[in-house]
Design a protein around this nucleic acid. Sequence first.
DNA 1: GATGAATGAGGGTTCATTCAT
DNA 2: GATGAATGAACCCTCATTCAT
Lengths: 213, 213, 213, 213
Amino acid sequence: MTTAAPRQRRKDARPQELLDAALALFVEKGFAATRSEEVAARAGVAKGTLYRYYPSKDELFKAMVRENLSVHIVESAAQAAQYEGAISELMRQMMRDWWAKVGRGNAGVVCKLVMIEARHFPELARFYVDEVIQPSKTLLGGMIERGIRRGEFRAVPIEATVHLLISPMLYMMLHEHSFGTHDVCPGDMSPEELLEAQMSLLLHGLLATPPGT
Amino acid sequence: MTTAAPRQRRKDARPQELLDAALALFVEKGFAATRSEEVAARAGVAKGTLYRYYPSKDELFKAMVRENLSVHIVESAAQAAQYEGAISELMRQMMRDWWAKVGRGNAGVVCKLVMIEARHFPELARFYVDEVIQPSKTLLGGMIERGIRRGEFRAVPIEATVHLLISPMLYMMLHEHSFGTHDVCPGDMSPEELLEAQMSLLLHGLLATPPGT
Amino acid sequence: MTTAAPRQRRKDARPQELLDAALALFVEKGFAATRSEEVAARAGVAKGTLYRYYPSKDELFKAMVRENLSVHIVESAAQAAQYEGAISELMRQMMRDWWAKVGRGNAGVVCKLVMIEARHFPELARFYVDEVIQPSKTLLGGMIERGIRRGEFRAVPIEATVHLLISPMLYMMLHEHSFGTHDVCPGDMSPEELLEAQMSLLLHGLLATPPGT
Amino acid sequence: MTTAAPRQRRKDARPQELLDAALALFVEKGFAATRSEEVAARAGVAKGTLYRYYPSKDELFKAMVRENLSVHIVESAAQAAQYEGAISELMRQMMRDWWAKVGRGNAGVVCKLVMIEARHFPELARFYVDEVIQPSKTLLGGMIERGIRRGEFRAVPIEATVHLLISPMLYMMLHEHSFGTHDVCPGDMSPEELLEAQMSLLLHGLLATPPGT
DNA sequence: GATGAATGAGGGTTCATTCAT
DNA sequence: GATGAATGAACCCTCATTCAT
């Protein structure tokens, strides 16, 4: 029994529609090059309507970032906590999931935007560092530590390893949205296969002669 | 040996001075947020003078990118060709050099700018892919291939490995210029130490139990 | 004696409530700087409701002015007609009354608004001249004439004297609402005392040596 | 030998031309109703040119006020100091001069504008009070005091008298610019004659019977 | 009748670009 | 060549007014 009048229904949906439009256009053309009227038009409303929901272009941007980032971060942490098997397998799984849910989706693109506009939105940069970067590092770092304690991993420096786990994902995200897919995944590899190969490589190392030999 | 008059010398140096000013400001504030008058002022000339050398802000940007990117790629290729020792050592050396000469310097920042503005300057994106990305991949890919043929490396997938070599460098570059250094090199590691640790990690792998065991 | 239902009473009171709100805000911030939504909000209704009663912001302003100006002029005329004592005393009384009822109240402020917006509302300016200025002049002029005929006043030029009676009142009104009270009534004088002093001064003149001496 | 290039000559004149245009339009239509482009157009330049000289419409207004007010205040004070004859004659002279130079000219109009916009430009209101109102009061107050000490004037309350001197001038200024001249100077009086009549009235008083009789 | 979501013309301001000097 | 005054298109944002509910 939906009782809301059409008008009301539209109103409730507006913020999300505007954020979606903003996301698409900010990604497409960058923040500065996107006119607020374009955002409105893409959301199917007039210029002024945008300002009923977000008091300025800057606030729209911030809202869009918060909307698209915060959600996915929390989820991943929960999964990791209750896992029991081999850490290397957990890591593989997480990377795969993260790419599927975040990296190739909206959140991934937003990460790029935040990096680009960090200088212009210092508070947003801080928010991103606090809410995204640090939690991610903590999550991955804990995983690696667990692997070392269990004797599964060598006693590698944790922070450096975290970086090495994160950077390929970021790299792919950025390149996909900067130069298009064709330059990132060469040969016949999909992003997923590429990540898989990198994970495997990372686990076993590049050298033919094992360290202990 | 014609020693140009000071006036002449100034004039000859203009283009470079303008490109330097442009680089500094584009990096500092982004392309859109940098006013062409600021560039001129920083180069010590008047607004109009800038337009004598570069017909538009866009052209200035492109010239600046070209100026700062092409140089360093070629150098490294020569070094690699005549190297004789262990490939892993060569790789280490190259990463170290690249970071010192490119990553932490102007060229590194320009890479970030190109990625940011790629959508706005498609021809520049193509130029970047052709002149920077592809040569780099070829260079690194060849190196890895050599290592495999020499029996030094396992038969890893080359392209994936190239990505895994490049991505941490890019990651550091981007973060340094987006969020400041403090988030990138945690603990007491310098960027150089971080790269070193990652290289070592990459070579020997993460697993305690060697693959052959 | 039909006692209207509360709903009905609200509705009947609306126009007055809106005019009151308009008065307060136009005085506080000026016509241009007052948003029609603010007026509605202050009257406790929604934006759209305002337009049910007044078809535009301009019409609202005009209605508000008419509402607040016409009233008090008529009253005074009657009082004056049936007065019997010394004219100077009547004049004193009228000034005092006018200040108490008009000058320091809403009507006074509205005078200021009309002067400010006269150029923008020519018909309103005419209305003000016809309904306020001219009647006032006639009233005061008649009083002075009477004083002269009765031998109470010297044979002064009537119009000039009228101006000299009106101007201090206007001066006080304007300053009170432009710069706050502190600059208008210096020393320890209240507006009432100031008017009293001015009236006395006006009656007896400034010179120590009486004219006939 | 005028050596300045036309371009330069124009540039030097621009600020004044813009201030003049601003004055005319602000008076004509009020501050809010005047578009900055109109000011520019009236000064014969394009919209953007205005902003080369004044960073905002507000600043333009303030500059215009300062330009038109400060000048005339100082002059009058000097004249008064060295006068020797009867104070009443000096006062007459000053009123006449003030009206000729200030009241009916630009400065007079600016006074009206300041009063209108005082709420919107508090710092300007303060400037006006400090630079115009207070000096004027001091000047006139001193004159009256001198007259009293010389035995020329009765021992009237000084502040009240100052108000009574100022208010008719202000009244005329405001009415001239709000409703046009026709309502202010009735009969066949010019503003000058009106002031003269008021001055005379003020000196000798309204009553036929001198106070001492 | 009342509401408030939606509209879009309008105005302040910026800045890439031009061109007379 | 160099300059910087001038330009005006563009863009962000406001708010009087409308109208579906």
